[in-house]
Amino acid sequence: MTRISERAQVPLDEAGRRFDQALAEMFPSFSRSRLTAWIKAGAVTLNGAVVAPRHLLQGGEEVVIEAELEVEVAAAAEAIALDIVYQDDDLLVINKPAGLVVHPGAGNSSGTVLNALLHFDARQAELPRGGIVHRLDKDTSGLMVVARSLAAHTALVDRLSRHEVVRHYAAVVMGTMIAGGTVDAAIGRHLSDRLRQSVRDEEDGKPAVTHYRLRERFRAHTLVQCQLETGRTHQIRVHMAHIGHALVGDPLYGGGLRLPKGASPELVEALRGFRRQALHAEHLAFEHPLTGEPMAFDAAIPDDMQALLACLRADAG
């Protein structure tokens, strides 16, 4: 376990404010929920005394934190290769291959990105969800940012919630699109199929916004770039299917294999053989959670999608 030892004086202008609220601003490296838990456990004192989170401050008091970071995750470390695009003491950016699950769950207790992260650095176990702040579906490839410190985790979660992390995806969809646009439609759990999400009324779902633009058109398909404004489960897959342009190969929302009239044998084989959603997280941009430095990363479209696009281009030509 990592020992946390911090000491600070409450600013005078915090007089009259709740202890837990002021503490969250004084120690932004830690989440408010973690600080509140430490207050309740007696790991944070005010002028040497243990007080309640709602205690009202006078200003000028001495705050002392003496706490231990407990293990947040219990998954096993596994020697799974990670394609690391960038790393420093506070974060990692990885390029996840299709087929790799991000976090253990039902039916996937091992062989995940989390297991790989714990093998890469055992200290990831001390971070919420092992430092994972956002996910990609199992069969979606591309870029993910992972926190390596509590301060980075808190900041990245906050920036994601405020839509300050730019995420662009390349997607091959069915049908020839005419123009780009925006899908603004709430998403929630499907009423009858618990594995799926669906567009729902605002009262039943969570707000979800996807912007998309055309990059390349083929005879019966389109390569689009999607930008997430929100990050709901299966968001791009649900939204594109909702507007009648489901992703090629999507087993949940694609509606089955569709072969364009007069397709070449090569294209037929490529479409039949593409057994994952044609979706790749190719661009990620954000400010460094500690330094504020602008950061941007790109990951090339993987070979399987490149091969599919080559067949679509040949068919269109």
Rank of each mutant, 00 (worst) to 15 (best):
L127Q: 05
S198K: 13
E62S: 12
A147E: 06
S161E: 12
D184T: 09
R276T: 08
P28N: 06
R275Q: 15
Q235A: 07
A147D: 12
A122N: 15
L308S: 05
A8H: 13
V71D: 08
A122Q: 12
P265N: 00
P289E: 05
E229C: 04
E78I: 10
E25C: 11
D89I: 03
P260E: 05
L114T: 08
V183I: 06
E6L: 15
Q197T: 00
H245I: 05
V50N: 11
A152V: 04
R54D: 13
A151V: 00
R3T: 10
G111Y: 09
V145P: 07
E126L: 13
I301A: 07
A52M: 08
I84D: 04
G188P: 03
R200N: 09
A281D: 10
G292N: 01
R18Y: 11
F286V: 07
F274W: 11
L117I: 10
A316W: 15
G16R: 06
A170F: 15
A179H: 13
N95G: 04
R313W: 06
E14F: 15
G254T: 07
A299N: 06
R123H: 14
T233D: 02
L57A: 08
R194L: 15
L57P: 03
P128K: 13
P207N: 09
L118F: 02
R159W: 11
Q58K: 14
V183T: 00
G205H: 04
V146T: 08
A37R: 03
H119F: 13
N108S: 14
L150N: 15
A98Y: 09
L12P: 09
I236E: 07
L82N: 07
